[in-house]
Each structure stands twice: as C-alpha cells, then as structure tokens.
Design a protein around this nucleic acid. Structure first.
Lengths: 243, 243
DNA sequence: GGCGGCAAGTTGTATTAACATCATGACCAC
DNA sequence: GTGGTCATGATGTTAATACAACTTGCCGCC
C-alpha cells in the first residue's frame, strides 16, 4: 500500500477489492482470499483489512460466512439500493403517532395466491389480514393492507392496530425483524380506492409493497399500500463512503 | 456492559446512545460525551466505542467533527432513508448501457426559478439543460431533464449524452460526487409527457427528483424525470444491524 | 493591539494481540 | 458403517496502545 497517497489504507484496500469484483477478477459466488491472505497481499494489519471488507459488506457486494470465508454476492446485476432498516422502523413509529386510522378491520382467513407466494405458504394456509385507512388531520392519505402468517402465532386485535402500525406491534411482540424489501411504483385510483381515499377515480397514487423478513430470512409480513401522491414523497438520501 | 448477553458490546453501546438520542437525553445539535468519556462510562475500549458510534454515523443520527466532538444531527424529525450512493452510480451506469436515448437536446440557458433555488444560484445565473427520452427496446420508458450549473465548467455535447447518463459523465469529468437526495412520488401524464412517452393522457407516472452534491455539499446536478409506472419499480432493500 | 505559535483536547488511522464462534473434514470408538 | 470428537482454519469480537490530523483557545512576542 502506498502511504504517500492522501487516502487511508483501508480505503485503498476497499477500492482494490471492489475493482476486482467489478472487473471480474473475482466473480459472483466466488470466495475472496481470506482476511489474513489479504493482509499479506496488501501489507496491512487485519483491522485495516476488516474495515475495508466491512465497507463491501455494507454495500452488499460481498457476504461473510463465519468459518467458511467471504464470498462475492450472486446477483450483482440488479442489486437494489441498500439501506438501514432502523430508520424505517422509526419512521413507521412516528407515522403511527402523528396519524390516525379509520375503517380498521382484522380477520383470519385463507391466504390468496399472491400472499401465499410472497409469504411462502402452502395451499390453504391461513393468514391474519388487517387493513385500514390512514388519516392525517382527518384527511385520508393512504390505504394499507397487511398479511401475517397464522403460524407465526402472533395475534392482533383492533384496539392495538388503532394505536400502532403493524411493524411496531410485531417488534413489540418479539418478532425479530431483520430486513425488508420495498418496491415503490405509481398507479391510478380505481373506484374502490377513490372511495376509501376520498379522491377521484384516476387520481395518481403511490403504490408500495413491503416484504418483511426475520433474521432467518423467513417472511413475517406482507404489506400492500396505496397513498395519495400529494401526501406521499419517498425521500432517499444517499452518501458515498469514498472514491 | 453486561457480557452475559449474547449481543456484542459495541451493539449494546450503540443501542444505549441511540436511545439517549431518541429519548432526548442528548438533543439535536448537542455534543455527545467524547469517545474516551464514553469508554469510561461503558467500561469498554475505544475500538468498541468507535464501532458503536460508527453505526450511528452510518445512520446519520450523529456527525463527527474532527478536533471538536460528536454531535446529534439537527433534523432528527423527518430524516430520510439513508443508503449508499455507490449503488446508485452503478445502477445508472448499467441503465446507460442497457437502454438508448432519443430526442436528446442540450443547451446553455438562464436558470428558471426552481432550478436556481435547488442549485443555489443567483438571479440570471446560467445552466446547461439536457433532456432526453430513454428507450428500452425502442419503447419510451422515461423522460429525463438535467440541469448543471454553468460555473461548474463542465461541458457536454450530444454525442456524449447519447452514450452515458449525465451522472456517469460528471464523474468521468472529475466532479467529486459525494451524496444525493432522491424524492419519488406519483403523477399523471399530461399531454406533452403522454406524447413523449408514447402513452395516454392520465397514465400513471413515477416522478423522480434528484439533487446531487459534491463533497463540499455544493449542488452539482439537478435531475427531474418521469417514468412510465409499468417500467419503473423503485426497489429498496433494508437491513438491520442489530437489536 | 495584533499576530503567530504552542498546548490541549478530540477524532482519524493503524498495529499487535488474544480469544470466541462457526464450519468442515479427518479420525477414532463403537 | 455410523456417529461422536477433535483439530484446523475461517470470520467475529474486544483490548491496549500509539501516533496523526484537526480545532480551539491561550499566551507570549512583536
């Protein structure tokens, strides 16, 4: 490692490994050299190497497997934006405090095909389905439907759901929420949604789908929501660790 | 720190400080105890403390100022989701390779009011405005307009813009891209957009606004885009560092 | 009075060291 | 053969320590 450069060594190591990956020296699924081999290769200590690899892990460019090694992730091609879920949890919690719910419903039922697929359930499996309209200053801003596998053994009643969002409740009930996938797109209000959201048919809506997983990557919640566009702005802030 | 718990010490320290912040023990703008004070408070080494604070910095809950201290960020309330910009850069680069552009235009002009505000320009300041329709398999999927301050002293021609997205070009020309803010919402196609995107008036569109900043937080690009909803799904993957 | 430089305090980077946890395969006892 | 045990090597966590870079305020010199 060249010490005359301004950038710290761990950045240089990070950039070098990152370039290996993007240039195909190490291909998806392949194992990287072990950390001590990397130490020897770059002539740095293990802490420095680990800090570099930590950055790659944060970017989800590589995954570490204790006892086995560090591997380039399989799906480099269309990796989604990666962020920190802690923020979503706080955001949802705040939303729950600053808004009210209306038309709340909850029932246990047999899962429909799409829910079965997303939650990886067998035919005829049961789910808890909860839905509500969310109000900001008595004005409806979104319609939210959530599905929870019945075999998760967590039950909700209407009072709870009026108080806190499902995600907050899940956590409070001890479900170890670990990650989620969020897909956002645009759609139009049909007659039913227009009625629920007090808007006109054809109004622009933000359509959000959320899958929540526990630490063993089992799906624990499926959420589908429609928000009135004028009340929903999905804000993402991205920063760069280095050059 | 309790060693009998399964979670590592740096996670415990992280959670403790995080809770201080959320519970108002340390308020926005306030300085946290110094790292060595934190070490004494929790009875851990500086490495452990730093790792905990690193996590808070990643979440943008606190900012470090070398030589001064570590401070709680000012705007806790509606902090956007924070992620890694490296991924966006790669994504944009791939998009440039997998799609084509049509109706590309570029010209230097006086900035309109909104662009002036976003790019923090004075009255009468000039910008380069570039616009194009992006095609996937000859089908228009989005209409993109970008504004670059003229005093950035970076010039583009149509050939370049046909080849690579603006963000890729900016980086290639040596602009040190450091962070960005992205806001996504839904809207409807008006007559002009419907024509450009080969769709109908009233079709659902994903509306994206992007502000790009350099390492000194100066705005270097403003991007406004409309994508046909069926061709744009904003995918976010969030993971959790701990409990 | 103003300016420069020094000292103290804080974060930034880096090393060496040790032990814990996990996965794997070889080996041995049954 | 089957199953348990152990050694090995990988990542995970933590410690003690040192020096560098930066900010700020104090203090003395001019």
């Amino acid at each position: 490692m060249d010490n005359s450069l301004r950038s710290p060594r761990y950045i240089q190591v990070y950039a070098a490994i990152r370039d290996w990956i993007y240039q195909g020296t190490y291909k998806p699924g392949q194992r990287l050299p072990t950390e001590s081999e990397l130490c020897d290769l770059f002539g740095v200590s293990r802490i420095t190497t680990r800090k570099a690899v930590d950055m790659l892990v944060d970017e989800e460019l590589v995954v570490r497997q204790p006892g086995r090694g560090t591997f380039v992730v399989e799906d480099l091609a269309d990796a989604p934006v990666v962020g920190d879920m802690e923020q979503l949890l706080r955001k949802v919690e705040r939303l729950g405090k600053n808004t009210r719910v209306a038309r709340a419903e909850v029932q246990e039922q047999v899962a429909d095909a799409e829910t079965r697929k997303d939650l990886r359930l067998a035919d005829g499996a049961r789910v808890q389905r909860a839905s509500h309209v969310r109000l900001l200053d008595k004005e409806p801003i979104g319609y939210v439907v959530t599905y929870i596998p019945a075999d998760l053994d967590v039950r909700f009643d209407l009072n709870e759901l009026n108080e806190s969002p499902m995600l907050t409740l899940l956590e409070r009930k001890g479900v170890d929420i670990a990650s989620c996938d969020q897909v956002i797109t645009a759609t139009l209000a049909d007659g039913r949604l227009a009625g629920l959201l007090n808007t006109t048919v054809g109004a622009p809506l933000v359509h959000l789908r959320l899958m929540v997983f526990d630490s063993r990557r089992r799906p624990v919640e499926r959420l589908v929501a429609w928000y009135r566009a004028e009340h929903y702005h999905h804000h993402v802030h991205l920063t760069r660790k280095s050059r």
